[in-house]
Nucleic acid binder design. Structure first.
Length: 368
RNA sequence: UGGGAUGUCGCCAAGUGGUAAGGCAUCGGCUUUUGGUGCCGACAUUCGGGGGUUCGAAUCCCUCCAUCCCAG
């Protein structure tokens, strides 16, 4: 009997994930990953409630339940990374780092050491095993051959393209996917909710979590201000060079941002750049500003789930939930250069661009 | 000190006798397992102050105040 450790966050998705695995005959253990427990000013960290919910579901399902304490590693690998990136004037994506370093590395390793054969999460994604065959001189991925030594594991988009979370998962490894189950990959969110309800899971009606897990309800700005000193600087109109107002730190602003500038009069202003040394934020009312719309992007810090792709035409995604768009990929000394067929708005340094071949998520990199 | 112009929500700005548009900002909500975007909703009993005319004024008159521009 395959022993599976399910990451249970106390939400609907991971609850149903565990329930489905039980029904499918796995030997299931629920695991709550304790990543962040600190209260923040103006917000109580909901970890205790989430843990309680996860535990209640585990009891409901009659499965073993454990807590893995990753607080230390999470703080270093995810939170520190995030703060450092912001300090450099970039806009990181901590959830991608969390998946890379914690869920599909630390959790996986810890679970395996603890006796698990596989892990599972409630992500909307598919891990598909198979191997490459030559058919009529063309490479084909044969999923029937998922037991061969040559088998590799692909990350594929979820059936529910609206909820697909492969964007957040592009930095996992094919090797990790081999040990991973994504039972929700075939279902749409409404169906998941219904199934959770049918099974009487106490989390069935729980609202989807949003925002960075540990930041939760409060904003990134409030979170960051705990770690960096607020320093007043100028908000400057890019076209006229005129000073329009003040901000409390360029670190709090990101490309394309509209709100929080407290400058008004006429048209809305959008952030089009910033200078961390001068602590200046540049804005414009020009919706077509050339730094806001780009059709080329350089990627560094590349990560490929299996192997690096050949140069050529691919689908890419610039941010979570953005539609896939066409781009030509070439390699450079430092990484990858993408030439997009259509311009995309606010491609931001520190954010990730994820590359797809059809439904298959190949990997990606971080915007230089 | 003469001459001209202007003063309507934090900002921009309609409204020239009939009982305060709209946009930005802000706030709240929705969307979203990053940031961000987007969407919806709220937001001036009051029009620089004070008088007056009128059934009725932000809109007309008087006066004061403030700001800007040109002269000096």
């Amino acid at each position: 009997m395959t022993k599976v450790y399910v990451g249970m966050s106390g939400g609907v998705d991971s609850s149903l994930t565990a329930a489905l695995l039980v029904e499918q005959g796995y030997d299931v253990t629920g695991v709550y990953m304790k990543n962040w427990t600190q209260d923040l000013p103006g917000m109580k960290c909901p970890w205790a409630d989430d843990l309680a919910d996860a535990k209640r579901v585990a009891v409901q399902l009659g499965i073993d339940f454990k807590v893995f304490d990753f607080e230390n590693e999470y703080r270093h690998k995810v939170v520190d990374y995030m703060i450092e990136e912001y300090k450099l004037g970039r806009t990181p994506n901590p959830d991608i780092m969390c998946n890379q370093e914690v869920k599909f590395k630390l959790f996986l390793e810890t679970a395996l050491e603890d006796g698990a054969d596989m892990i599972a999460t409630g992500h909307y994604a598919k891990a598909v095993g198979g191997s490459w065959n030559m058919v009529d001189g063309k490479k084909e991925f044969n999923t029937d051959a998922s037991h061969l030594p040559s088998t590799i594991y692909h990350l594929q988009q979820a059936a529910d393209t609206n909820k697909d979370q492969t964007y957040f998962l592009y930095r996992v490894t094919g090797k990790a996917l081999q040990k991973t189950l994504f039972p929700l990959g075939e279902f749409t969110k409404p169906v998941v909710r219904d199934m959770a309800k049918e099974r009487g899971l106490i989390t069935a009606g729980k609202k989807d979590s949003q925002g960075i897990c540990f930041v939760g309800k409060i904003g990134i700005r409030e979170f960051l201000s705990q770690y960096v000193e607020q320093k007043s600087g100028a908000i400057i109109d890019k076209r006229t060079g005129k000073k329009l107002g003040h901000h409390d730190g360029a670190i709090f602003y990101t490309l394309g941002q509209r709100h929080g500038l407290d400058v008004g009069g006429g048209l809305p202003y959008y952030v089009v750049g910033k200078d961390m040394d001068k602590n200046e934020v540049y804005v414009t009312t020009n919706l077509n500003d050339e730094t806001l719309w780009r059709d080329t992007v350089g990627l560094q810090n590349l990560h490929w789930i299996n192997s690096a792709p050949q140069p050529g035409e691919y689908k890419i995604r610039i941010r979570h939930r953005a539609p896939l768009t066409d781009a030509a990929l070439t390699f450079t000394d430092t990484g990858v250069e993408l030439k997009l067929h259509d311009q995309q708005r606010a491609i931001t340094a520190g954010q990730s661009v994820v590359i797809y071949d059809g439904d298959v998520c190949l990997g990606g990199g971080i915007v230089a």
